[in-house]
Design a protein around this nucleic acid. Structure first.
Lengths: 251, 251
DNA sequence: CGTTGACCTTGACGTTGCGTCAACCTATAC
DNA sequence: GTATAGGTTGACGCAACGTCAAGGTCAACG
């Protein structure tokens, strides 16, 4: 009752290459080896193969299948674990589909694929690593580029506010006004509002947290790429001081 | 204004390895190469990189991204094509989730992972290659093992009918009755009904097509693995004749 | 001027599950 | 004997990089 590798392959609807693969990785050794090196499979091997293919069709990986068949893991538990992965994949796909759909709409609305210099160096998602170290990875775990969810008008509006804010900060710094002056504090308030328009930041109740706001000010000074937007290090120091004053008062 | 590879990587939230990868595959060459071999990127390269990452986040493959950026394909059309793939993936996932969920329920209902010898050699999905050559691949394109969608009772019922049908055919063949006799035609009718319970077959209006039914009869004779279920080649020939008679009358 | 540490280079293997040759031996049938 | 089908062991390919490995370069510090 032993069958050759081709017989088995046709019988279960797969290929001999697959069976050799399963053999080499120890997932399904043939029940007998001919003196010529041929692989022969008996009914027991067939049953095991059917189980393998069943689990494979359910989407499990071969190592996971091996765990189940070698009784190193409860089938139900393995499937439960796998089910969660599948659900996550599905959610990821759903988000991606939404993003792609919106992007298509924007493109058909005559917009370019991406405005040049859209962020003017303000893209906070750039500082993924630094921020993650301070506030944990989950704040950025979504991985989506948040601005893909913005409409055309929203984006251009945000871009304009961003540029204006940077210019106003720079001007104020050059005038040498005090960080706790009303003008500087008004700028700090605008800065906070502007930040609130960036989803995905570490926030408490929909708005950036005090810790994030303060940390951000420090980064403006510490990082030249940021500082450049506020008139260099001195300007950035002024911004940071104003932000700290604002945060202590209102956050 | 040229930036080193690490600067760029941190700036956009990726790694230098990725940038080298994009360089080697021609997707994003550096704007300048130092005499020391260092890669330097200007603002133009940064814009291109941003577009690459945007499209990548939408799930496009790098070759597809290259097509878009090299203006060999309309962005909107590329995204539309991609959107269809995503939708198909999502449907596939949904079906898989349903299958996994049902399997878990069965397992928790105390059932084994799979009954041994469930198909008694009748599994038509075995003959994927042969049937695909005759009726096209799309009939089996779904790839799902249809019976995973059956409940416990459905499966055992189908299994019983299958075994009974094979036994009845064999008995009739051994009695030497005519293929166009009423008894043989009744068997042919039962065979057709039985086949109808196998989703995924090439059908016209929910039931197997005449072509499939006739081709199946031929295969019963031509293939010993099938013939064995009907009492060998002679029995299979009887079955085929009865099926042809039935098909000409009723299909 | 030497050293340290950060950053750069190319090269190559690993990942997942096989498909697809390539080169060569074996079994079966006419 | 030979044609044909089927068996064997490599080894590369795919997608998009992660991850060493080994070694050259650059800026700063003492």
């Amino acid at each position: 009752m032993d069958r050759s590798i081709q017989d088995v392959a046709r019988l279960v609807g797969t290929t001999s290459r697959t069976l050799r693969h399963y053999d080499r990785m120890g997932l399904l050794p043939p029940s007998r080896l001919g003196s010529n090196g041929y692989r022969y499979y008996d009914d027991g091997a067939l049953v095991r193969l059917q189980r393998i293919l069943l689990l494979r069709d359910l989407g499990l990986g071969l190592p996971a299948i091996a765990d189940v068949l070698n009784r190193e893991m409860e089938p139900a538990r393995a499937l439960q674990k796998h089910l969660e992965l599948l659900r996550q994949e599905q959610e990821r796909l759903a988000r991606q589909i939404a993003s792609v759909s919106m992007t298509i709409e924007q493109l058909e609305g005559g917009e370019q694929l991406m405005a040049e210099n859209m962020f003017d160096g303000f893209d906070h998602t750039q500082y993924k690593d630094e921020v993650e170290q301070r506030w944990g990875a989950e704040a950025y775990a979504s991985g989506d580029r948040w601005w893909t969810g913005m409409t055309d008008t929203e984006r251009s509006g945000w871009k304009a506010r961003t540029a204006q804010l940077g210019a106003d900060w720079t001007a104020a710094a050059e005038q040498g006004i005090a960080a706790n002056s009303d003008a500087a504090q008004e700028l700090a308030r605008r800065h906070y509002e502007w930040l609130s328009g960036v989803p995905g930041l570490p926030s408490s109740g929909g708005r950036p947290s005090k810790e994030y706001f303060l940390g951000l000010g420090d980064m403006y000074v510490a990082d030249d790429r940021f500082a450049a937007n506020y008139g260099g290090r001195e300007g950035a120091a002024f911004v940071r001081d104003a932000m700290k004053f604002f945060a202590d008062r209102h956050l």
